[in-house]
Amino acid sequence: MQTNLSQSIRPRKKKRNWQLFWILLPMLILVVMFHYVPLAGWALSLFEYKPGYPLLQNKFIGLKYFQMILTKSTTRRVMRNTLIFSSLDFLTLPLPMLLAVLLNEIRSDRFRKLAQVITTLPHFISWVIVYSLAFALFSSEGLLNQLRAELNLPAQSILTDRNAVYWFQTLIALWKGLGWSAIIYIAAIAGIDQELYEAATVDGAGRFRCALHVTIPGLMPTFIVLMLLRVSNFINSGIDQYYVFQNNIIYNNIEVLDLYVYTVGLKKQDYSYAIAAGIMKSFISIALLFIANTTAKKVRGESII
């Protein structure tokens, strides 16, 4: 995803055509309306904003909310949850690559295609449906507990188990995303130079050694880019998954930063405070993005954005 336009330089500069601009304008207005005007809303974090009053009639309080966020114990809990989910997710990053390598070892074209279609399917269902499936399988009346009851085992509800939240949500996310994330590696495997395999085979390498010494090193650049992109999104855990799976019992463990901002802002209508929290989140992500990008430039001599 490069925004660098300098590659497409053509020799002569063409004449400006304002007609093109007028065609572009309506869509530019949409971009401004839904992406840039909200940025102006950041100013509200400096006021004690009450809906319905013009901005300047609200009390100016400066950076008070930012200070509050930094000292509140809730912030610490929410950050901890976010970092735990992100770290666990980070640990699963090599799995799609591994899956692609294993899939590549399957000889039957038909079976390989079938496996690819079925494992990527969960990516295309919404989190509401994922929750509905989890509910059907793991709730107190779900399939798991029906089977446990038949074996005379005590009922067990993972969905309301506070200690299970972290690993359970990680596994659910893995179920949804594993096959889809593998596709990019499958494409990358197709792009590896065939001569490398021939050379390795001549040197006496079997298929296992080919995978270890040719395929995996060939996939490393892709892996590194994806890893760095993940770093830049470390605190952007998203909200959908945690929102649908939340309940009163596990709330303190599942509340990630995005969910916190939503709850404070839209449920408690504490707009200014929630905006301040959102701004801090944005700044941290932008800083992480720059760090990731600089690292990418150093490691592979090319930026990721």
């Binding site: 995803m1 572009l24 005007v37 940025l39 809303g41 839209l266 929630a274 959102g278 701004i279 954005i305």
Partner: peptide, 25 residues
């Protein structure tokens, strides 16, 4: 290339991938 301000507007659009006002704004 005849589009006036092409580079600027293109940047303006792509930046939205990384910067967002957030859910409340």
């Amino acid at each position: 290339e005849e589009l006036p301000g092409r580079r600027f507007f293109y940047r303006m659009v792509t930046v939205t991938m990384y910067v967002s006002g957030g859910i409340i704004p």
